[in-house]
Each structure stands twice: as structure tokens, then as C-alpha cells.
Design a protein around this nucleic acid. Structure first.
Lengths: 343, 343
DNA sequence: TATCAGCGCTAATACGCATTAGCAGATTTT
DNA sequence: AAAATCTGCTAATGCGTATTAGCGCTGATA
């Protein structure tokens, strides 16, 4: 560690030229580089090669505006295993796109307990722009970001916060509506909804897609809560005469499905189940629920590309929703004849 | 984007003081900060609060040496799904430790097809030090790293490269030896080894732990290759009269186990199987192989802590191996009486 | 012969911050 | 009353680079 880093001044001294000349040799813009004859250029380059000199990116950044670094900010830690399956696909897309575009990623770990973008020691600004991941999102910080001049893109749709928020989200509204239509096409007209209908945008979107798509079907039961006792939920569903139930939470669907199976109620024979969204490795629980898939990797990619557009070309705010493909699954079936008779 | 970033000069102007005073208010070293009376300090801090000013970390880094950023370099992309299970646990540990120590992570994506540390535009140096992940490792680059003055720590044991390499590795030698002893204790003395015994350090370590631990047992069959036809491998094992076989690759073990089951050969009744290492979610294939676990998360943590030690205190090179706990599993059993008779 | 245009390079500056040296005025000491 | 000390600040500098302005020189042009 004793040896100090090499600088352009050192190279200049060794090559018998000035620091400016070294700089020109390194990043010869056509106009200026041409003015340096091959002989001098070779001499300088030889010294650079011999010494293994590399320009200090920090100093570089001082002069130019940009750093070719994108920040990735998450309000929750990105890797801890509980979150890993959630965050990993996004990061996958982000990393691939960043690599293709020639950017590195600065992972902001949030220095303290509470993660904040506008904190005391915000190293975020080291990046040229930033991608924001995570379900929770401090409204005030979002507002400040929108108001500020630091380029960012959110992964996931966001309501306006003192202005439109640039984002790449999932088309949950359309995906949900498509699933409802599918259920309707299969004859279901006594439908139920289990899950929150307010809070985060991603949650609200399910409900926004759901209700209008009913289109005359009867919403016989709603439960705007999650993680309730599955037995009671099932009782309520049956009492209401629902033939098809939509869950926002996979976990709830799994629990209710298990109870139903235990009681000899056939899914989808007696009751169809639809889940509004998917999870990685959903297959592990042995049931392929009818749902839509969230294109997490593509969202990460698109957000990265959008961010670079904003950083490099000062592009205007964009808001993009990516399609959520329907996952057929085994839990949505046609209305049984028995139900048809009962109605 | 029209509004330029705020600088200390702006704050100074607004507060009616000099830029130096603003700097003192921000990072008041006890001696100097005391010289600024509370009145002035409050005035400056109010402006800072009102404007939301944050110091540019790049400029900061220009002056001080450090940035509180650790680079994470991987020769392979870190997230793509095939690698995700491999890299994620390391990153988990790295991120947690970095967060605790107050560092951010710079993920180096490798600009082109071939990832190199010493490239044309090495952004690595923006970090204070760097952690190197990945199975493949360019020998020349490692040598240059060792020779250079840039602090780094490798995850995984590395042979000397013009000097000792600082690393945090897994105790594969000891783990392998422990498994061999376990097999011996169960009566096995006709043992086989399937897998490479040269190449990467992690591979070599298995063999190094394996052979001496035989301690008189007969090595009746070796196959220094992976991904061979499992049927043929099994034939060879049986022909050699092996009662216990060690695999370096989980995939090979799975394949041979499947063929054995298909042929009605009992594992571990007729043949015990040991795998030298584990994989996340190994349970998915439905077989709990006897093996040792690789403490990936702990390795990430330890490497990060070691790196910070090197960065902050210029600590000497350390080489650490973390214990690999034995995973009991279901595939190593006592020598069957039939085998005992045969011998 | 004086002027001008190119050539090959260098001096000087700015980027935003931390930090050292130091200045003017007030207060205390001798 | 002069000297020393303290108080509250600012000027100036350097970190390593990119870049603009410009200098001294040669050869061509007027």
C-alpha cells in the first residue's frame, strides 16, 4: 500500500510530455487526437502500458457529469432470503440491461435501520441515476425525487407525487380483467374477491381491474383482508354461493385450497380459484393456480433502459406497463352443471 | 433537469458565510467545529435543510481517500437465473455485512463479453476495495491484484499468485475428510471417487481431503470426470465392488441414484452415496444426500469484514477457511451384512 | 520581407469538497 | 500601553482529470 497511485502527471513525466498530452492520448476526441503525431502517441501509450496506469474514475467524474453507474435503491434489504425470490428477478433484468448499456450498479444498502433516499450520507448521487425497487415507498421522498433533478425510474406503477412518476409497472389491471373475463366466459356469474383493495398501487390495480370487468356478474362475497382463517373464508364463500373466487395473495389461495381439498370440495369442480399474480417457484406447493405472470425480469430491463434514456438524453417522463401473461393453471374450470341448475 | 446541483458555494451564499464554513458545519471535526458558534451553525444548517443539499460524494472522494463503497466483481453475471442460486447466498452475506459496516456495494457488471478487472475503463477503483466472486478466475489478473495496492478479498480459497491471496474459503478439505471418516466408521472399506481432482482450487480441495482420509480403505474405483453416462458409472462401481461412492457433483449423484433406484439397487442399502458439497434448494429433487454444507452466506460476511479490515486498517493478508457442517442425509448407511460377508 | 496558417504541444482552469494557514477584531495578560 | 491570546471567520490550496486557450515554431502566402 506504500506506493501511491499513478497519475497522469507521472505518466507525463515518464514520457517527457505534459499531463494534457497524456489526457489527449487517452481520450482522443478526433479533432484533438489528430493533432498529436503517432510518434508521441506511441511513446505515451508505451509508458501507459508499461506502468499499467488507469485513469481515476473519480477524478474523471469530477470533470464530466457522468459516471456510468446506476444506483439501485431498495427500502428493504435486497438479498435476505425471504426477499430473495422477490427481488432477484428484477435484479436479473437490471443487471443484464446495465451490462449491455455499459453501466455498473451501485447497490444502496441503506446505512441505518430506516432506509431513506434523502439522508445524511447519501451516496446515491454517486450514480448517474437510480432505480427504485420495493413495495413500500415513502411518499415524501417520492415527491422530492419527482421535484428534484436526479434521474430515477420506479419499478412498479406509482401514483402521481407532485407530478407524474416515471415507472415501469406490471399490467395488473389488464391481467386481472382478462382473468375475470375468462371466468365469465366459463359461465361464472357468482364471483368473490379475497384480498386488500387499497394501499399500495399494485394492490389497488387488482381491484381496479377486477370490479369493472365483472360486467353484470354478481359479486357475492368480498373480504378486504388477507391472512384470515381459511376455514372461515371457505365457509363464507360457500354460504354466499360463490362459484369462482379471486385471491390477491397466493398464500391465502393455498390455504383455502388445502381446506377445500380436506373437506372434499373439488377445485375447480365445485369452486374455481384464481390468483392475481404469481410467485417464483410457485410450483413447489404442488398446485398450479390459474393466475397471471408478473414479468419481473422484463420490468427490470425496461426500467434500466428507461433510466439510461433519461440520464443520457434527458428523455421525458415515461410510464410503461408490461403485459402480464395469463397462466392457465388447473384451478379455473367451467361452471359445473350442478351450479347451473341451482341458479 | 434545468436546475444545476447545489454546491457548498450556493449554501454559503444563501447563509452569508464562506464555503469553508459550510464544510466545517457539515463535517465538524471537534477542534474546528467548536470554533463556529451555535448561531452561525444553526443558520447554515437551516439553509442546508431548506434546500435539501447533500455533498457530492465524488468530490468528497477526491479529497479523502475513501468512499465507503465496496466493489463486487464477478466473472460471470451474478443474477441470471442459472447462477442465481449460486451467487445469491454470497451476496446476501456481503450485503448484510456491508450494511452493518456502513458501506455500499458497487456491482461491477463487466463491460463486454469477457469480464476483466484490468480493462480499459476500469471503474473498479471507484470502490475502496473489492470482493471477487466466481469460480473462474483469471490467473494473470489475480497476480496483478496481489502485486498491486488495491485492497481485495477473494471468496473461495486461492493458491498463491505471486504472493498469498487474501481469501475466505470453505473448509472442503476438512469437510471431505470428515465424511470419509464417517463412511469408514460405518464399515466401508471399498470406496470410489467420481469427479475432477484438478483444476479450480475448490475442486482440488475435495481430492486433497479425500485421499489421505482413506487411511487404509481401498479406493476401488475412480473416475476423474463429470457428467458421464450414469448407467456406465454405476456399472463400473458395482463391478469394482464399491460400497460407498463419493461424488463431487450433485448432478452426477442424482443421475446415478436415479439409475440405481430404477434397477432396484438400494441406496444406501446396497450402495452408499456421499456428495462433497451442497446446493441451495437441493431438496427439490426429493433426495437428501449425505454431504457437507457450504456456508455461503457466512463466507460473504467474513469476506466483507476482512475487506473492510484491509481497507480501513491496512490489515495484513488473511486466509480463512470456514467450517462446512456435515449434512446427515439419507444416502450414507452402514455396510450391509451381505457386503460384509462378501468381503 | 512581413503576415498568416498550420503544427505540436503546454499552461491554465474548472469540477466540489476538505483542510491548512492566516487575518481582523476583541479580550486578556504582562 | 504594548504584547499575547483567543474568537470567528475566510482565502487559498490540492485532489486527478478534461478541456480551452494559446504559445513558439515552421513553412507558405502576400
Amino acid at each position: 500500500m506504500a506506493t501511491r497511485r499513478l497519475t497522469q502527471k507521472d505518466i507525463a513525466r515518464l514520457a517527457g510530455v505534459s499531463q494534457a498530452t497524456v489526457s489527449f492520448v487517452l481520450n482522443g476526441s478526433p479533432e484533438n487526437a489528430n493533432r498529436i503525431p503517432a510518434e508521441t502517441r506511441d511513446r505515451v501509450q508505451k509508458v501507459i502500458r508499461d506502468t499499467g496506469y488507469v485513469a481515476d474514475p473519480v477524478a474523471r467524474r469530477m470533470v464530466k457529469g457522468l459516471n456510468r453507474i446506476l444506483g439501485v435503491f431498495t427500502y428493504e434489504p435486497a438479498f435476505p432470503s425471504a426477499q430473495a425470490d422477490f427481488f432477484t428477478p428484477f435484479l436479473l433484468g437490471i443487471e443484464e440491461a446495465a451490462q449491455e448499456l455499459g453501466y455498473d450498479l451501485l447497490l444502496l444498502t441503506g446505512a441505518g435501520v430506516k432506509r431513506r433516499i434523502f439522508g445524511d450520507n447519501v451516496r446515491l448521487r454517486l450514480a448517474d441515476g437510480c432505480i427504485i425497487l420495493g413495495r413500500q415507498f415513502d411518499r415524501d421522498e417520492l415527491t422530492r425525487l419527482v421535484a428534484g433533478d436526479f434521474p430515477f425510474v420506479a419499478v412498479g406503477r406509482r401514483d402521481d407525487a407532485g407530478g407524474p412518476v416515471p415507472y415501469v409497472g406490471g399490467g395488473y389491471v389488464a391481467g386481472t380483467a382478462a382473468l375475470v373475463q375468462r371466468a365469465r366466459a366459463l359461465g361464472h356469474h357468482r364471483i368473490a374477491y379475497i384480498g386488500l383493495n387499497e394501499g399500495a398501487e399494485s394492490t389497488v390495480d387488482r381491484w381496479i381491474g377486477f370490479e369493472p370487468a365483472l360486467n353484470g356478474a354478481e359479486l357475492v362475497h368480498t373480504q378486504f383482508a388477507v391472512a384470515q382463517p381459511p376455514g372461515e373464508t371457505l365457509d363464507a364463500l360457500l354460504a354466499a354461493g360463490a362459484t369462482c373466487v379471486f385471491f390477491t395473495e397466493l398464500a391465502d389461495a393455498i390455504a383455502v385450497d388445502a381446506v377445500a381439498r380436506h373437506r372434499g370440495i373439488s377445485v375447480p369442480g365445485d369452486l374455481s380459484i384464481v390468483v392475481l399474480g404469481n410467485h417464483i417457484r410457485a410450483e413447489e406447493h404442488g398446485r398450479r393456480f390459474t393466475s397471471f405472470s408478473i414479468p419481473r425480469e422484463a420490468m427490470g430491463r425496461a426500467a434500466t433502459e428507461m433510466l439510461v434514456r433519461r440520464v443520457e438524453n434527458d428523455a421525458p417522463v415515461e410510464q410503461v406497463l408490461l403485459d402480464c401473461a395469463i397462466v392457465e393453471g388447473d384451478t379455473l374450470g367451467p361452471l359445473s352443471t350442478q351450479h347451473v341448475r341451482n341458479t
